[in-house]
Design a protein around this nucleic acid. Structure first.
Lengths: 253, 253
DNA sequence: AGAACACGTTTCATAATATGGAACAATAGA
DNA sequence: TCTATTGTTCCATATTATGAAACGTGTTCT
């Protein structure tokens, strides 16, 4: 069997074709409806539907022997839109921050037990903080990582600490930082992950008050001096604007 | 091979497991991430991903060799929520209508080129309009069907008329009705699909001004007399309330 | 700089697995 | 009542999914 184009799995493709049969106009389909629409064998459709049902992508309306799309799609869509929106909506705000600070701006998310940068704007100064897109960095080091960790669930924090190889003292130090960052709503570091560099990082939250990413300013420590308060203020404002766009609402007092 | 429990397709189940690897926290995964999470063979995951990508359920971030969920999920979620919400939110409103009118209340949607009832509340009178859930009825007959048709795309109207076997005169009559229903925002019929019965039907629209269903009051013609205007008003109010819940916003003049 | 490693991708032989025809049950329609 | 339609189960077949191995590339470690 020649497969120059990348190989695919027939049954999976067919199963997805079933999903595409459902539309706003036709949200409920009988087995036979699907057979007609796809042209597949009745038995095959039945088996594919069973598989989709087992994994909850399809629900059966027993009363009328029809099938419809399952609840997990709502969750999947949330994942898609959240990240789609985050990146898209972040860019103009990152640009603003970049104009104000002239430093490198980055957008980070948690990936497993690491942090990765999913978007960056390099600084305008001759000596810039360089950032790699998509490379995993530890969550227990540097402002960007620790900020994300500070707003994460305790389980993740424990998991990260375990895998970090930090000493007891270092762990205590880290936990103190996390608490501080949580309280003040931003993270600051200097000469920590990279000697000679500073970073300020702020949390982006969604409508359920969950962390979905972090916005960071980073640059040369030497340039920070009189700008620190300004940068922090700008970073917080930007993150709050982004959070609002992602549906976050500040809890009223 | 003994399969007492309903048979399923391994590769489809596995493909779905891949989808479930993506979460709000980990919206971007590398092939290897997925291999670790699922415990599946690397080649298998690669092939499943290729299949999912071909059908656009997964996108590849070429820059960093990661995968993420595709846009179609947004569409699927729309289908799910629309119908989920519709039925759930409709029930209390249908109850209100039922209290006011004492007649049978039904919730209808378009299914292919037919109308089906997806929810009903039977009347409180001794002689009631009985309604079958999930049975397809023609769209060109009766208030409930014609209302749905009136708010549908021209293509569907043409398709329905073609399959209806209506004469030229009857078609003209139907089109006149559709226009009337569209203008006045409700449909009324008497002794049409069922002799001795009346029906009043009102449209439920979503945020994109699209029809997603219809709300109907139906009962014995003999009981209607002095209630007709009251029923129409109540039906319109209920449908508007439901539409608002589904995101519909009246166009400002 | 060189070696070892990790990761994505391709190839290929194997048999496990998906497939569709046929038969069955249940229900609706004539 | 008989026929047609639809959902479901069973089964033999070979198509199709599978995983080991190998390849190419880029990264990390020493």
């Amino acid at each position: 069997m020649k497969t120059n184009e990348t190989e695919t799995v027939q049954s999976v493709e067919r199963a997805i074709e079933l999903l595409y049969c459902f539309t706003t106009r036709t949200p409920e389909l009988s087995l036979n409806d699907i057979v007609k629409r796809t042209g597949l064998n009745r038995t095959t459709v039945f088996r594919l539907l069973s598989s989709l049902m087992k994994k909850e992508l399809i629900n059966k309306n027993a009363a009328m022997n029809t099938y419809r799309l399952g609840l997990p799609f709502i969750h999947f869509a949330q994942i898609v839109t959240e990240n789609l929106d985050l990146r898209k909506m972040a860019l103009p705000i990152m640009n603003e921050l970049n104009e104000i600070t002239k430093e490198t701006i980055s957008l980070n998310i948690i990936q497993g037990a690491s942090r990765i940068c999913i978007e960056k704007l390099e600084g305008k100064e001759d000596i810039r903080q360089f950032i790699n897109l998509g490379i995993p960095y530890p969550l227990y080091k540097g402002a960007s990582g620790k900020l994300l960790l500070a707003f994460s669930k305790d389980e993740l924090i424990e998991e990260v600490i375990e895998g970090s190889g930090l000493t007891k003292n270092e762990t205590a130090e880290l936990k103190k930082d996390l608490l501080l960052f949580q309280e003040q709503g931003f993270a600051f570091s200097m000469d920590e992950r990279i000697i000679g560099a500073f970073a300020i990082s702020t949390p982006i939250l969604n409508s359920q008050q969950q962390l979905i990413g972090g916005l960071s300013i980073s640059g040369l420590s030497a340039r920070l001096d009189n700008n620190k308060q300004l940068f922090i203020k700008a970073a917080i404002q930007s993150a709050e604007k982004l959070s609002a766009m992602m549906g976050y609402q500040k809890l009223g007092g």
